[in-house]
């Protein structure tokens, strides 16, 4: 009866929202195991976070979180199917069960966590909102933007922060909103707006998409806190735990010096009790999560630890060249901190 009820609700949601639904009969984990892959909602094109490379493979730190979950669950990071979603589509897609998880540079806020039936599983990138302007304008600070036309992506926290910032500083602006971040970039380039505002990481990513990246600068002001992380549906703790601890395993692995290169060796030979517990040599910590014993080994082997993931996608080994900054480990001056596995 319960499953009939749930299916019916999804049907109503589908009828109402015009979305197609992958069956969600019962807890997410069972459904995912049964269909054999994780359906993951990602961004519709954001270098460093989620984008299709020249071979058509999705890459980025948001994509890697999904791949990590698949590696932990199936021992195979390729068992993921991606649904590129716009900012406006993302929550309905997750709520209605179209995707199993959302890993789409989504800001953790109280209203999203409590009012929308969602749970944020952690933070894979600490971000803040900034401004991208043409050097031709000669603007050095966001405080000089009174009267500017501002391009924004619709339905984001960015839209709200922008309003707050201009109000607090007694300035006026004209909002130009588009559904897709690509459209905001095109509009900035065409001159429809003077300035583009978004999370700083996105601004760096969008800047390299411009025809002449050097004609544009990111202003120094950071006007908000934007903790970005993976999201799951509320009320499915089992699935929530899996996503959350996948992320924690990556951070712990970096802290313990476990990398994709040495993980198999460490799993066999390490004498460090923390490493032994994480990699399944001691205890049954995977079992509690309803995951295989070698879940963390698979994550690190196939996706890498947090540091590897960061540098490969957005850090020094990528086009974006973003500093670790807030995203360094806690013992290196950053905010990335994971509870211990024991």
């Amino acid at each position: 009866m319960k499953s009939v009820k749930t299916t019916l609700t999804s049907m109503v949601a589908v009828a109402t929202l015009g979305l197609s639904v992958q069956a969600v009969a019962g807890p997410t984990l069972d459904a995912v195991v049964k269909k054999g892959f994780v359906q993951c909602g990602i961004s519709d094109g954001l270098p460093g976070f989620s984008y299709a490379d020249d071979k058509g493979q999705f890459r980025g730190i948001d994509v890697d979180v999904c791949r990590g979950v698949a590696a932990a669950l199936f021992g195979d990071a390729t068992k993921v199917r991606f649904s590129p979603l716009t900012a406006k589509e993302r929550f309905t897609a997750l709520q209605s069960g179209e995707v199993d998880m959302l890993s789409r540079n989504t800001t953790w806020t109280s209203s999203r966590d409590s009012g929308m039936g969602l749970n944020f599983a952690g933070v894979n990138y600490y971000d803040g909102q900034g401004f991208l302007v043409s050097t031709k304008l000669g603007v050095k600070s966001a405080k000089e933007l009174d009267g500017a036309a501002v391009c924004i992506q619709a339905g984001t926290t960015t839209e709200l922060n922008l309003t707050d910032y201009f109000r607090a500083n007694g300035m006026k602006y004209t909002p130009i909103t588009y559904d897709k971040s690509d459209e905001t970039v095109k509009a900035l380039e065409a001159g429809r707006c003077d300035v583009l505002t978004s999370d700083q990481s996105q601004l760096y990513a969008q800047r390299i998409k411009l025809a002449n990246p050097n004609d544009y600068v990111v202003l120094p002001e950071v006007i908000s806190k934007e903790p970005l992380g993976p999201v799951v549906r509320q009320g499915d703790d089992e699935w929530f735990n899996i996503v959350r601890w996948t992320l924690f395993a990556m951070v712990n692995a970096e802290e313990l010096g476990v990398t994709s290169a040495n993980v198999e060796d460490m799993a066999k030979n390490s004498q460090n009790p923390d490493v032994r517990r994480m990699l399944g040599a001691e205890g049954e910590y995977g079992k509690d999560l309803r995951l295989p014993k070698d879940w963390a080994v698979q994550i690190v082997k196939q996706v890498g630890n947090y540091g590897e993931m960061f540098e490969r996608n957005v850090g020094k080994n990528s086009e974006l060249k973003i500093e670790r900054g807030l995203n360094a480990l806690w013992n290196q001056g950053g905010l990335q901190y994971a509870p211990p596995i024991r």
Binding site: A13, T16, K88, F91, A154, G155, T177, D179
Partner: peptide, 20 residues
């Protein structure tokens, strides 16, 4: 991006409130 009913209400408001 013309702020009509669909774009503004069924778009932005829906996303800000989550009440689809």
């Amino acid at each position: 991006g013309y702020p009509d009913l669909v774009s503004l209400f069924a778009g932005t408001v829906l996303n800000q409130t989550g009440q689809a």
